[in-house]
Design a protein around this nucleic acid. Sequence first.
DNA 1: ATAATAAATATTTAATAATATATTCATTAT
DNA 2: ATAATGAATATATTATTAAATATTTATTAT
Lengths: 198, 198
Amino acid sequence: MKLAEETTETIKHDILDKAFLRFGRYGFGKTTMAEIAKDCDMSAGNLYRYFENKKEIAAGCAQRCMQQKLELVREIIRDTSLTPDKKLQRFAMDVLEYMHQQFSSEPALMELVDFVSRERWDIVIHYMEQEKSLLTEILSEGNRSGQFNVSNVLETAKWIQASLIKFIAPRYMDAFSLEELQKEAKGVTALLTAGLKK
Amino acid sequence: MKLAEETTETIKHDILDKAFLRFGRYGFGKTTMAEIAKDCDMSAGNLYRYFENKKEIAAGCAQRCMQQKLELVREIIRDTSLTPDKKLQRFAMDVLEYMHQQFSSEPALMELVDFVSRERWDIVIHYMEQEKSLLTEILSEGNRSGQFNVSNVLETAKWIQASLIKFIAPRYMDAFSLEELQKEAKGVTALLTAGLKK
DNA sequence: ATAATAAATATTTAATAATATATTCATTAT
DNA sequence: ATAATGAATATATTATTAAATATTTATTAT
């Protein structure tokens, strides 16, 4: 990567950082390009050298947020001290805690969710595909170690993803308490892993 | 029940019928009290003898819709030809089909969902409690017949409910196709019942 | 040549007025 | 006495305008 490219990426990164903070605190609508620009010590016009428009900045924030969720999962997969069934449980618990944390500390973030749901569902689909792929890794590991007996790893991953949606998706984060959701997540994963075992 | 009371109930019932049709086709916002009244062959003012206001009519519609979902489940429970695990699967499949049917034929209905989510979450909680209670019945039956081995029936019912939320709640009905959701529902219930068995 | 700015323009949002609708109530019919 | 109406009033929607903000572009600096 050339120096110019690198600084461009760094600046983009900084813009998303600053924008995400504002979107979280004041919401998408109440955040102005001028404000984001000032946070980044540049003019509003200059933002357009890095992002096509305000919605693309919001999309970038959402994508990064989802990438962070995925990174959380990759860390769990890497952790060799965890058995596959523990990895599945940690998947639900860690993602849930991350999501609930985000939405309880920054309720205005729900505006970003609404935007993505309405206008950038493609981002959600892409995230879900990647997440599903990570789930297949956990299942395959379980198959190899003999702990699981899953014939169709890809399909099963989709089912697990569907059954954990309450703890992964933003929709119910503000409707239920973290404690309540955590108890449920633990129960659901226990039930699921029981069904996966030999 | 006295005759007067009975006709009052009949009229209320008719109002909800007519209102629900309009909410479904034109949405809550675009439906006027005058229109509902005309559908019922009465004046707008007279509606207030039966419902406190427009929101109460909407709440009544939502409640009735949820009661119908519950009735669906009660039918499944009554069906003696089904084993408990089949009942669980039918629970997911029948409710999913009912919901998807509703929201694909009447997309404006989502407005009613938004209203209930925002202002009458208590109705949702009440529905979920009843639904959970019906799930415990299925689990208990499974325990009695020896097909299931569930130690805490009430907690487990909550977990099953949480894991099937994608197929029961309205939120994702317009984001995924019925076929896709049906495949997933089948997979999830299969996974869950495997975990419940002795 | 690249990066940034700041002024110009297009678009969106906010404020207001105008209209439509929800709700109440005095009156009439059953 | 109960049920229903339709006019009166309060509330909420919609249309219109004014103001703010997003986006583009001509210009300047590096």
